[in-house]
């Protein structure tokens, strides 16, 4: 569908002029965080929206990416333009292994086993002190020299463009996959596993493709995050990252590429607004998740694409037709 394509392009153009229009380092910082979350939400959406399974352990790949970049730069001295892609690749390898195990399961079993993997990794990160420095974490993940030289606003601008580049690459990869035959096959499996098999789709292999790309993207986000905040500890596996990702994908609209982007930007804004009160924020998030499930199962994109759900005659589970794009 060209509508989604042109809106994506529009967002990218807007993103390119943004840091020159806004010279405020605080706003730029928020934009960088939003960029990281856009990649994370896009990544989770590949699983939730296109594999059709719900992962509660997606922080596993974010965390692996973060630790990989932190170790590669502090121990091996590699520069950021190598560590972030390598973080993505390593997360992708873990994605292949974890996917090969978890994608044999469906429904609640998939949810629980993905959660179990993330917990195992968190415990390993806390206890394998020789590698990860345990609960103390890895401090002093180096900034690129250009950032250090560019001053406060300049440094944020450089980070901003790196984040924008990462977002562009991630969205492009996701877009290519979703529009590809594998993406259509994934939608077919999500819609009707039996029909998909009867037209020759291998549900497991298809899910593996999508799952692996999803892991790679989360790894990028983790690697970049490590450099940006210059510290990585076992908290990267914590559940509040997961809660944020869930709400971004659900609120924006799962199964669309633009939805999670929208969701990420809104949620980062909301998080910043409620920064002082983490509990209140998460309380609100929980309510939003419930409200979305009950009243707007396709999120904002569903509301934008069609008439509001409460006007629809029947409680049809999904009205979005642009989610598959088998065009």
């Amino acid at each position: 569908m060209t509508g989604e394509r042109s809106s994506l392009l529009f967002v990218l153009v807007l993103a390119a002029v943004f840091p020159f229009a806004v010279q405020n380092p605080y706003i730029l910082h928020l934009a960088v965080i939003a960029g990281i979350y856009v990649v994370l939400a896009t990544s989770l959406n590949l699983i939730v929206g296109y594999v059709g399974e719900f992962s509660l352990g997606h922080t596993a790949f974010f965390g692996i990416g973060a630790y990989a970049a932190a170790l590669l730069s502090t121990a091996a001295g590699l520069p950021i333009w190598l560590t972030v892609p390598l973080a993505g690749l390593l997360a992708g390898l873990f994605g292949i292994v974890i996917g090969a195990i978890t994608l044999r399961l469906q429904g609640p079993y998939f949810v629980i086993v993905t959660l179990a993997f993330a917990e195992v990794l968190r415990i390993v990160a806390t206890n394998w002190i020789g590698l990860t420095n345990g609960p103390m974490g890895i401090a002093g993940v180096p900034q690129p020299a250009s950032v250090a030289a560019a001053g406060i606003v300049g440094g944020k601008q450089i980070y901003y463009f790196m984040a924008a580049g990462m977002v562009a690459v991630s969205l492009y990869l996701a877009w290519r996959l979703v529009r590809s035959n594998s993406g259509r096959a994934a939608v077919a499996v999500r819609e009707n596993r039996f029909v998909a098999q009867s037209i020759g789709v291998d549900p497991f292999l298809t899910a593996m493709h999508v799952f692996t790309l999803s892991a790679v993207l989360a790894g990028f986000a983790g690697g970049f995050y490590a450099h940006y905040v210059s510290f990585v500890g076992p908290e990267v596996f914590r559940f509040s990252f997961m809660a944020s990702m869930i709400i971004m994908v659900l609120m924006g609209g799962k199964g669309t590429l633009l939805g999670p982007v929208l969701g990420a930007v809104i949620v980062v804004g909301l998080e910043e607004y409620l920064r002082q009160a983490q509990e209140l924020r998460l309380t609100l998030f929980g309510l939003i998740v419930m409200a979305v499930v009950l009243f707007a199962p396709n999120g904002l994109m569903g509301l934008l694409a069609r008439r509001p759900a409460w006007l629809a005659r029947r409680a049809a589970p999904a009205l979005v037709s642009n989610q598959g794009e088998p065009a």
Binding site: L280, G286, V289, V293, P317
Partner: peptide, 24 residues
Amino acid sequence: GHGEESTILLTIGLSIFLANATLY
């Protein structure tokens, strides 16, 4: 009757809400 996914998401939302409301 809307499938597993809705109840899973609903109860995840409920759990986030209850935990943090209590914490608050």
